[in-house]
């Protein structure tokens, strides 16, 4: 049984880490980008961002004033029991979100879509989102918070098999060029691409590809992995950099996730995370251990499974 108080305390710590500390994989990617950037303005912007990450850590203040729309991804081993059950878990995550909004502080971004009511705590109908995943073994819970910005850099399109890879590239470039102008997408960013699924799952896959995979990771399908490399390079050959200024760096990494889709379609979504790439992860165990990390490790073989039954023993034997 995992203590609900420990879950809440860990969740609050994660809210702070996500808002304040740039994840190492993204930081390394951005430093690499900065070392290759030669546009006057775009180099200046990347240097300013690197200084900003240091300032945030030194002052323990949020990296960016738009602290995004905090959300939670929760994953559990199959044997996990939570004190108070799933209702207590959701209440703990909502409390941690509200208290951290007040204490850090974060910007209370969440409002009613029509009446613009703001509870000043990032809590409301459907907010924060809490999504779940499960893994075959173990008794542990992974708490992952992502504070993604919410206005620009994301789009969806129904493509068809006849659109092919050339159609995928076109829509990808359209998204980067349109949202990259004036830097609306807060690039250079991790770009997540969802292909397939249904419309909603396509969006979910793309968002998770952007927010739950780290820089340098590759899809387990080698052909998709090479498409990731190709799209990264394509995005960086637009000639556009930070803030839409002339530059070489638009994409810190391109991550693709796929899901089986309608036989007639090839849904596609594109999501830009941002220059603050806010994500933080902790695994909490029943014995009270808490292990913090920045890699969500979301996309396991189990999450990408294709078969009716999950038979890891059989896979291991192959």
């Amino acid at each position: 049984m995992i203590s609900i108080d420990l879950i809440e305390a860990t969740a609050k710590e994660l809210m702070a880490k996500a808002a304040i500390e740039i994840p190492d994989d993204y930081l390394d990617g951005l430093k690499q980008a900065a070392s290759t950037e030669d546009g006057d303005l775009s180099s200046y912007v990347l240097q300013a961002m690197l200084e900003n990450y240091e300032a945030a850590k030194q002052d323990r203040r949020a990296m960016c004033g738009d602290t995004g729309t905090p959300r939670w991804y929760v994953k559990m081993g199959n044997g996990t029991m939570i004190e108070g059950g799933p209702i207590a878990l959701e209440a703990a995550l909502r409390r941690a979100t509200a208290q951290s909004t007040y204490e850090l502080p974060l910007r209370p971004n969440r409002v009613h879509p029509l009446w613009r009511t703001d509870h000043n705590n990032n809590i409301g109908i459907g907010a924060p989102e809490i999504e779940y995943g499960y893994e075959p073994g173990g008794e542990w819970i992974d708490l992952i918070t992502v504070h993604k910005g919410g206005l620009f850099g994301t789009d969806y399109r129904m493509l068809f098999p006849s659109d092919g890879i050339e159609g995928i590239k076109r829509f990808y470039l359209d998204c980067l060029v349109a949202f990259g102008k004036r830097g609306l997408a807060c690039q250079p960013a991790i770009i997540g691409i969802g292909i397939g699924g249904c419309k909603d799952t396509c969006m979910v896959l793309g968002k998770r590809a952007a927010c739950l995979r780290i820089v340098g990771s590759r899809n387990s399908d080698p052909k998709i992995a090479s498409l990731e490399d190709e799209l990264k390079e394509l995005g960086n050959s637009i000639g556009m950099g930070a803030m839409g200024f002339v530059g070489k760096n638009m994409v810190i990494d391109a991550n693709i996730e796929v899901g089986y889709c309608h036989t007639g379609g090839m849904q596609m979504s594109v999501h830009a995370f941002c220059l603050s790439s806010r994500r933080a992860v902790a695994r909490v165990f029943p014995d009270g251990r808490v292990e913090y990390r920045t890699d969500p490790e979301w996309f396991t073989d189990y999450q990408r499974r294709e078969t009716v039954e999950w038979e890891p023993m059989l896979e291991a034997a192959e």
């Binding site: 303005l41 399109r157 129904m158 493509l159 068809f160 006849s162 659109d163 092919g164 050339e166 159609g167 590239k169 076109r170 829509f171 470039l173 060029v177 102008k181 004036r182 394509l234 050959s237 637009i238 000639g239 556009m240 803030m243 839409g244 200024f245 002339v246």
Partner: peptide, 24 residues
Amino acid sequence: FERENAKIAGNLERLYAGTKPATL
């Protein structure tokens, strides 16, 4: 921003070569 966009625009035709407009 428009000054920068104009500089980048010259590259786009080459970049888009080989891509395909969506069927729908």
